[in-house]
């Protein structure tokens, strides 16, 4: 019992460690998607005018892993990930589909004309109903879709290179091998 004085010290250290971890590694505003390993919800949307054919649930089952990016012309954070998506497109790393969330056709088209179009197909979710079926609660969000059209994961907020390498690339490689 010589080290009994350590009990409060260790208890405090334990609590401090948990709180430290939660403070810097957990984000309470990120709610993981409920739809993991479920098929993407059913939908069929018109394209952003001038940007390819529309987007429907069946377009997502492509035989390879693809991304479904929820974007909007009014979304400031979307600007942060946009150049990276353009880069992915030029390198042909992964196909990206664009779900234009609660936007107007004119504004969306203008935004894509000004910043470039990284998307293979686009769909306009004018009322945000498809977004709700996907459990979207903020823009941008990016869904990773399996070859058979199931949702593998969701990234909340702008996709950074780090996040791409840690969360998307492994899924791409897994499906490719």
């Amino acid at each position: 019992m010589r080290f009994r004085f350590l009990i409060p010290v260790l208890t405090f250290s334990g609590i401090a460690a948990v709180m430290w971890y939660a403070l810097f590694n957990l984000n309470p505003t990120e709610i993981p998607t409920e739809l993991v390993s479920k098929p993407a919800p059913e939908f069929a949307l018109e394209p952003v005018p001038g940007y390819g054919p529309g987007l429907a649930q069946t377009d997502l089952a492509t035989g390879k892993v693809v991304l479904l990016n929820v974007f909007a012309s009014w979304c400031v954070a979307c600007m942060a990930e946009h150049p990276f998506f353009m880069e992915l497109k030029t390198q042909d790393t992964v196909d990206i589909y664009g779900l234009n969330y609660k936007d107007t056709p004119e504004a969306a088209a203008q935004w894509l004309a000004r910043h470039g179009n990284p998307y293979k197909r686009t769909g306009m979710d004018l009322k945000g109903r498809v977004g709700i079926d996907f459990g979207v609660y903020g823009v941008p969000e990016t869904f990773i879709i399996s070859p058979d059209g199931k949702i593998l994961d969701k990234i909340i907020g702008p996709v950074s290179r780090d996040m791409f390498e840690s969360r998307i690339l492994p899924l791409l490689n897994e499906a490719g091998s």
């Binding site: 709610i31 993981p32 409920e34 739809l35 079926d133 459990g135």
Partner: peptide, 8 residues
């Protein structure tokens, strides 16, 4: 709602 956004 739970099916889309979870128990949360």
């Amino acid at each position: 709602l739970v099916a889309r956004f979870g128990d949360w």
